[in-house]
Design a protein around this nucleic acid. Structure first.
Lengths: 247, 247
DNA sequence: TAGTGGTCTAGACCACGCC
DNA sequence: GCGTGGTCTAGACCACTAT
């Protein structure tokens, strides 16, 4: 029996799961950053004292959950938010006529506000932080074909985004910023959708009548280490757009 | 080189993908029906002339996409709509406070109407049928805690649901009916979500004010053979409910 | 040509459910 | 005890990419 097989017996957890956990740990600790290439399956196997097939199973699972991207003949890479697949994983609002997902309906952003403030009680709960800590609150309008369709507020815990005030202007695709500048990999997103009647303020921003039905999307983005790193509330005018979901 | 490996070269498609296709074909042709047990991996491998590992890869993929359920020590089974995992795969509306998915928030149904009619032009397009064919149109109200929260219309192509008029009353979980009585396995669901203002008619059904924002869910359910077998439009009052999505 | 991931096989043993 | 799926290994060969 190999050393690895013995370890399996002790931990009561499959070897490939232990391998996966070890590799995820390297992503969390930023030993491997978004875009960088991992060692080959054989090197990882040799290093961890397991067979290549076991490493493959761990890598396949991580690729399936969007953490890695595997390219035959080239290697295995840490996923980047810039990768098209990753981008559209979290982006579901598409123009009505459009069949597939494409960059065409991707909205332009205009940031209205960027303020730092003490976390209120709800934010303290969401981000698991104390009342002395601060958050960033960003507001923006997103437009498709120069027509405003979405008002959005993003709340970020300041501690996860040092010196974000120096980033100006903020990019249209903000997950790419999280990934490239702060090394944050979004592992999971929790969304709650509701329909609400537009307030006078939001109606003004979107150029619609007060009371118009809007699709509200309440989203929490969770990083690899389990920390919630973004709380986003979007209000979308769904006259020419819709939220697409494939089950 | 084995015969199977030669076939691989000829078809330019991985063996396990061919095995998967062969097994899916048996589900479509109802050789194996929902709930029934498949032969063991070794039997399938022997029958198809491939190794057990190749069959395993095909079965694992089919289990991942919700077609099969694998149970260690028991066997591999065709998924049933009654299985909890399958049920909640397509059911996303949950009460606001609720953390996980459970049967608690599952709404009761009252069917208002069940009419058979010629397919209109939109239905002809959706179901890929001619104008002489008919569809069933069902309308129901769904309630949670005796409070109506959702108005829904379901359209079904009659040819896929023979003698459905004899089913009375229609069950609350209608996908279970598709599965158990008609042998239809829903392989995929396409949903489009929008916010709309309630019409007077729907507002009356739900006991709310006209113009109240409602979440509209336009859903098309596609069977294993690629045929769309249900077109559903739901209007949900999201005061105490929301649509939950995990990405 | 060298190095990477992708496929396929064969065989051993473990964990679980049932009789 | 038997049959099932689950894990792990070892090795061969294929397909793709870069140089």
């Amino acid at each position: 029996m190999t050393e690895a097989a013995q370890q399996f017996r002790l931990n009561q957890q499959p070897l490939y799961a232990q391998v996966r956990a070890a590799l995820v740990e390297r992503l969390i600790s930023k030993v491997w950053s978004p875009g960088s290439m991992l060692p080959s399956e054989f090197r990882i196997a040799e290093e961890l004292g397991v067979s290549q097939g076991t490493v493959r199973k761990a890598l396949d699972e991580m690729a399936a959950s969007g953490l890695l991207v595997r390219k035959q003949g080239r290697g295995t890479f840490v996923a980047e938010a810039a990768d098209n697949e990753v981008l559209f994983r979290f982006y579901r609002l598409v123009p009505n006529g459009q069949d597939g997902l494409s960059a065409k309906g991707f909205p332009e952003s205009i940031f209205l506000e960027r303020k730092r403030a003490r976390a209120n009680s709800r934010e303290q709960t969401i981000f698991q932080i104390g009342g002395t800590e601060t958050v960033w609150r960003l507001q923006r309008i997103r437009s498709v074909n120069a027509e405003p369709v979405l008002w959005e507020e993003l709340v970020l815990p300041s501690s996860s985004f040092p010196d974000i005030e120096q980033v100006d202007p903020l990019p249209n695709n903000i997950y790419q910023l999280y990934s490239s500048r702060f090394g944050i990999i979004v592992a999971h997103v929790h969304e709650e959708l509701r329909a609400v009647n537009a307030s006078a303020a939001v109606a003004g921003h979107l150029g619609i009548a007060e009371g118009t039905a809007l699709l509200e999307i309440d989203r929490r983005a969770v990083a690899l280490d389990g920390q919630t790193i973004e709380w986003r509330t979007s209000l979308c005018h769904t006259k020419n757009m819709h939220y697409r979901n494939e089950l």
